[in-house]
Write a protein that binds this DNA or RNA. Structure first.
Lengths: 214, 214
DNA sequence: CGCTAATATGAGCAGAACTCATGTTAGTCC
DNA sequence: GGACTAACATGAGTTCTGCTCATATTAGCG
C-alpha cells in the first residue's frame, strides 16, 4: 500500500503500522454503519483501541483518514482489475465493461467503506470548490475518478491492443464518472445493488464508448 | 416556492419570510465561497442579520437549510425548463437534451449554490446510507435527481407526444444521474464548465436514450 | 382591548475536532 | 552494556460549532 502524501507521518514500526491499518478498518466500518456525517475521530480511535493523540500522530485530519481509506480501496480495486486482465485477456472491449462494472459491484458488496472511492467534495483539494481564480485542472489528478479512468484506460488498451487515441482519455473519464454515479444510485436503491440499474449502467457505458472503441 | 416539509415552521408573516429567504441567499453564497464543510450556521445567521435563535426557529438543522436551498434551486430549474418548453415546443427529442443540459449550465453559472441540487449524502434521509434493513426505495422520492428525472420525463414526453413506455422512467433516472455527474465534473475542471465535457455529456445522454426515444 | 399564536433573542450547553507538553520505547553506534 | 536520537504514546485541555430554551415581544383578530 502506498498511501501517497495522505498521512501526516508514515508509520515505520510494525505496531504503528498495524494501528494505522486498524484505524482505517474501523473508519470503513463506521462509514457503512452511519455515514460520513456521523463519523467521529474519537469513535474511530476508541474502536481501534488507540488513544486520540495517536490518531493525530498519523492523520492530520478527519478528511485525511477518509482520503487514506479511499486510496486503499481504490488500489485494491485496480489491483483486482489488473490481475483479472492478465489472468484472462479480453477478446472484445465490451467484455471490459462487464469486468470493470462487475468488479465494482463485487467490491461494493464485500469491502466496507468502498462507497468512498469517489467522494468528490471530501477528496478534492481543501478549501472547497474552486475558489475564484483557482481553476483546478483535470490533469492535476486531484480527482479520484480521473485516476481510476486513466489506469483503467491503460489496462484495457494494453489488454486489447487498441490504438490509443487522444480523446480516448477524456472518453474514459466521462465513462467512469457516469458509471460511478449510476452504480452509486443502484446501491442507494437496493442494499445489494439494483440489478436493473447495474445492467443499465453497462448499457450506458457501452453505448457511449462504442464510437471510440468500435 | 413550496419548500415541502423542509422547514421546522413555515414563516407566515412578511418579515420572517424575507428573513428565511435571506438566510437561503447567504447559504448559497457561503457554499460557493468555501464549500459545505466550511458552512456555519452562525455565519449564515450573521450575514443574513438574523440572530442564531431565529435561524433555528425555521430550520431544524444545518442540513435542513441546505435541503431547502436545493429545493429552491431545483424548482427554479424545472420552472425554466417548463416555460422554455411551452414557449417553443420541440420538434426532435435530441433538442430536449440540449435544452436540459444548457439550462443546467446556465443556472450553474448564474445561480449561487446551484451545485447542491443533487448532493446525495446530504439530502438523503438522515442516518446516513442504508442502515441494515432500511432499504431506501427509489419511488420514495428521497432522491432529488429522481424527482428531476420524473418531471423532466413528463415535460419532454408531453412536449413531444411520445408513447410513455414503462422503462422510460428508469432510463430518465439513469440519464439524469449520469448527466449530473459529468456536468459536475465539467465544473470542477473549469469554473465556467469545460465545453468539451459539456459536449460529451450531451453525446452520452443522446447515445443512451436513443434506444428508448428513436 | 384582550387573547393567542407567531416571532425574537442570545446566553449557555453538549460535544466534536484538534493540540501539546510530557513521557516512553525502538533502533543504532560505540 | 550505555548513551543518544528519532519515532511513538498519551489524554487532559482548548476552541469552536451545532443547537436549545427560557423569556420577552409583536401581529392579527374577534
Amino acid at each position: 500500500m502506498t498511501t501517497g502524501g495522505v498521512l501526516r507521518r508514515r508509520p515505520t514500526q510494525r505496531r504503528s503500522q498495524e494501528r494505522v491499518e486498524r484505524m482505517l478498518d474501523e473508519c470503513a466500518q463506521l462509514l457503512d454503519e452511519a455515514g460520513y456525517a456521523a463519523l467521529t475521530t474519537k469513535e474511530v480511535a476508541r474502536r481501534a483501541e488507540v488513544p486520540i493523540g495517536t490518531f493525530y500522530q498519523f492523520f492530520t485530519d478527519k478528511q485525511s483518514l477518509v482520503r487514506a481509506l479511499a486510496l486503499r480501496n481504490l488500489e485494491a480495486y485496480l489491483d483486482r482489475i489488473a490481475s483479472r486482465l492478465t489472468a484472462a485477456p479480453l477478446s472484445d472491449w465490451t467484455d471490459a465493461v462487464d469486468l470493470v462494472v462487475d468488479e465494482f459491484v463485487r467490491m461494493k458488496r464485500t469491502t466496507p467503506g468502498f462507497g468512498v472511492v469517489d467522494f468528490g467534495e471530501v477528496l478534492a483539494a481543501p478549501g472547497g470548490p474552486a475558489l475564484p481564480g483557482t481553476q483546478r485542472m483535470l490533469d492535476e489528478a486531484l480527482e479520484n475518478n480521473v485516476v481510476v479512468a486513466d489506469r483503467l484506460r491503460s489496462l484495457v488498451v494494453e489488454s486489447l491492443g487498441v490504438a490509443p487515441g487522444d480523446d480516448l482519455s477524456r472518453a474514459f473519464v466521462v465513462a467512469v464518472e457516469a458509471a460511478d454515479a449510476v452504480l452509486k444510485l443502484a446501491f442507494r436503491a437496493h442494499p445489494e445493488g439494483d440489478p436493473d440499474l447495474i445492467a443499465e449502467c453497462k448499457r450506458l457505458v457501452r453505448r457511449y464508448l462504442s464510437d471510440h472503441l468500435a
